[in-house]
Design a protein around this nucleic acid. Structure first.
Lengths: 140, 140
DNA sequence: TTGATACTATACCTTTTGCTTATTATATTT
DNA sequence: AAATATAATAAGCAAAAGGTATAGTATCAA
C-alpha cells in the first residue's frame, strides 16, 4: 500500500482553499496575502526574510505580497534601526478589521469541513498535524 | 481560538510538495501531472471530465495536463465508441515505469514526514483525513 | 583595517497551476 | 424538429512561486 497522507492533505487543503477563495473574493485579498497577514500578526515587527522563512517561500515571492498589502494600507515597511538593509513589517489598524472578517470566513469553512468529526477527534487530529509540522520544520 | 486545521493542512502539503518537486525534478513531471496519473490509474479508461471531477479542477485545466502527458507518451486519448464528443484516457506502459519511480519518492518523503508519529497514530490520522475528504465530496 | 564573504531587499523573467468566457461538435430531452 | 445540455478545447488572464542577478549593507578573518 502506497503513501496516502501527501495526497490527502493536499486534496483537503486544495478544497478548503477553493471554498475560502470563493467566500472571500469580495474582500480583495488572496489566500497567500491572508496567510502572510496571519503569520505576521503572530510575529509582529519581523523582517521580510523572517516572514518568508515562516511562510516557507522565497524572499522575492514575499516582496510582491507585501507590496500589495502595503498598497492596500494593511502593512507598513519600517526601516530597521539596527540594520539598514532590512525592513520591519508593521500591521496597520485596518488590517485587524480585515482579519476579523477573514477569520469568520475561515472559521465557517473549517467548521463545515470538520463537522463530520467529534470535537475529540478534531482535537486529536489537530494535535497530530501540529506534531508533524513541528517535526518538519526541525528537519529543515 | 481560531481555526487552525486549514493552515496546518495547507502548510504541511505545501512542504511535502516542495520536497517532492525537488526530488522528482529530473523525471520531468510536475506535481499536478503526477497527481493526474495516480488518479487515472485508479480510474482507468475514464473520460476527461470524470478525471477533472476527481481532481477537483476544471476540465480546461486538465486538457493541458493531458496534452503534456500525451506528448510524453504516458497517456493516450482514445475516442469513446459510444459518445463521439468524449475521449477515454488510457495509461500507456511507460507510465507504469515512471509511476514506480515517483511512488518511491513519494513514499520516502512521506516516511520522513510521518516518522514523528507511531504507526498507530499514522493510521489514526489517515483514517480521520479520509473521513474528512469523504464528507467534503458529499457536501458538493 | 581592509578585503572577502554573507545577507536583505528587490528587479526582471519564467514556470506551474488554475480560472473565465466562448466555441464546436455531439447527445439528450421536450 | 427544436431547445437544451454536455465533452472537449481555444484564447487569454491571474495567482503563486521560483531563478538569477544586483545594489546596498554587515560581518568576519587575516
Amino acid at each position: 500500500m502506497h503513501s496516502k497522507f501527501g495526497f490527502l492533505s493536499y486534496e483537503i487543503s486544495h478544497i478548503i482553499r477553493q471554498r475560502f477563495n470563493k467566500k472571500a473574493e469580495n474582500i480583495g485579498l488572496t489566500h497567500a496575502q491572508w496567510r502572510a497577514l496571519v503569520h505576521l500578526s503572530n510575529n509582529e515587527n519581523c523582517r521580510q526574510i523572517d516572514l518568508a522563512d515562516i511562510l516557507e517561500i522565497k524572499p522575492i515571492t514575499l516582496v510582491r505580497q507585501i507590496d500589495l498589502l502595503e498598497v492596500a494600507g494593511l502593512v507598513r515597511r519600517n526601516k530597521d534601526s539596527e540594520d539598514r538593509r532590512a525592513y520591519r513589517l508593521e500591521l496597520m489598524p485596518k488590517a485587524h478589521a480585515v482579519m476579523q472578517e477573514l477569520w469568520e470566513i475561515a472559521d465557517a469553512v473549517e467548521a463545515e469541513v470538520l463537522k463530520t468529526l467529534t470535537p475529540q477527534e478534531q482535537e486529536q487530529m489537530t494535535a497530530l498535524l501540529e506534531r508533524i509540522k513541528t517535526s518538519m520544520s526541525e528537519t529543515i
